[in-house]
Design a protein around this nucleic acid. Structure first.
Lengths: 228, 228
DNA sequence: CCAAAAGTGTTAGAGATACACCCATGG
DNA sequence: CCATGGGTGTATCTCTAACACTTTTGG
């Protein structure tokens, strides 16, 4: 039993985990085992432990629930309306995460928890105010992807330019001109062609490229603007 | 006395309040009356009450400490390293605020609390991790001011274009070309000239303008890009 | 030879940048 | 008449946007 002179809220972290599944943008949801909202789908998350930072809490919860260690993670915002949880006052720090579903497999079920990937555009009913958090996360992703190289967090080490373009189109919900897109991507100097090509495709084989993280880190220091 | 089955952290809100004082960008600080960091300068803030939202808590604290009701307020980020407060686990939700020091006077001292405005570039030693919060806030301000009309939150209803330009230069820490700046500002269609001019200045009197909030609200809906 | 996706350049227009002088006012 | 800041236009350049056909491969 823990006692305080003044009331303290509970604090949780919840993550909106984006992934690219079969060229569709999806989010990871967990089915709740406990009341309230028992049986409903919800964002993965949980209570912040007293000895861990918020970032560490988000990482730990995602590790526990997806088994993925390496992922992109950034704080989104904190949601704290007094009545957002019917049990007690719960303030949640929301995160945006991106997992690479090519290089890492995500365990769909962990310690008897049901988990699943759902289309961003058509999610099921969500517990609490999680639909609002999802909206904020999508907004952040759409805004940030235009001037930071987040796309490569979704893609395998080696990718084709068409994959990159389709991903941008999916996230931004608008078509991009192929020639202008390729010019711009290659003009950054951070997307480097390999001498490898697709195999066994029934059309001209696409060239593979990789993202040069070092070049990005160097250039991003000096106010470099990515910009799609 | 309040009891919980699991330990709960304390949650506070802290605000970085920016204001334009004599053409200098300043922040509002409060001198701490209590341990820890008694006597040190700190960001204004305090504990979140159980029945108020985070935004409401930030507004209430600022009202109590500055007497200002109308101000620009936006959530910045949440800081929660386990050891950021020596007493107990305290997670703080940081806000960025802007007060207009032309139209509203801020009471420098409130209920026996010492308060003061300090240059952003040269603040005193701050309590807790508040220097990190300040850095994040300044970063947010510099980023956001380029594509959202935040400058007008600092300025009086009626202002001159030179005031606007100097403010941009102050915040962005770089000079701007006068003619190009004026073209761009006027090109937005949201900064409207008045038939009023400065009085009693020992040089050509500058024209006054006002910011058309309605035009901004309409245009910002349709993906309008401010951009300086 | 057909279907399917990869790959490739040029042109026109819009927006950004660079730049220098005259004007109005108070002292 | 001098000091101080207010106010104005043009030329160049860069970046963006629009646009259509040829290439490669498997079936």
């Amino acid at each position: 039993m823990y006692q305080y002179e003044y009331p303290h809220p509970a604090v949780t972290v919840d993550s909106v985990v984006f992934g690219l599944d079969n060229e569709e943008l999806k989010i990871l949801l967990i089915r709740r085992k406990l009341e309230p909202f028992k049986g409903a789908w919800a964002l993965p998350g949980g209570f912040v432990q007293m000895d861990e930072s918020l970032d560490d809490a988000a990482k730990r919860e995602l590790m526990e629930e997806t088994g993925v260690e390496k992922l992109y993670l950034e704080q989104l915002a904190t949601f704290g309306k007094p009545d957002r949880d019917p049990r007690e006052r719960v303030i949640t720090v929301a995160y945006v995460a991106i997992v690479n579903l090519f290089d890492h497999t995500v365990k769909a079920d962990s310690d008897a928890e049901e988990a699943g990937w759902f289309p961003v555009e058509d999610p099921p009913e969500l517990a609490f105010d999680h639909i609002k958090i999802l909206a904020a996360a999508l907004n952040r992703l759409q805004g940030k992807i235009r001037y930071q190289p987040l796309v490569f967090e979704f893609l395998p080490e080696k990718f084709t330019l068409s994959q990159v373009q389709k991903l941008y189109e999916t996230v931004l919900c608008r078509p991009l001109d192929k020639r202008n897109f390729r010019k711009k991507i290659q003009g950054t100097g951070m997307v480097i062609p390999l001498d490898e090509y697709e195999m066994d495709v029934s059309h001209r084989a696409a060239r593979f490229y990789y993202f040069d993280r070092k070049a990005w880190e160097e250039k991003s220091g000096e106010g470099f603007h990515f910009s799609i």
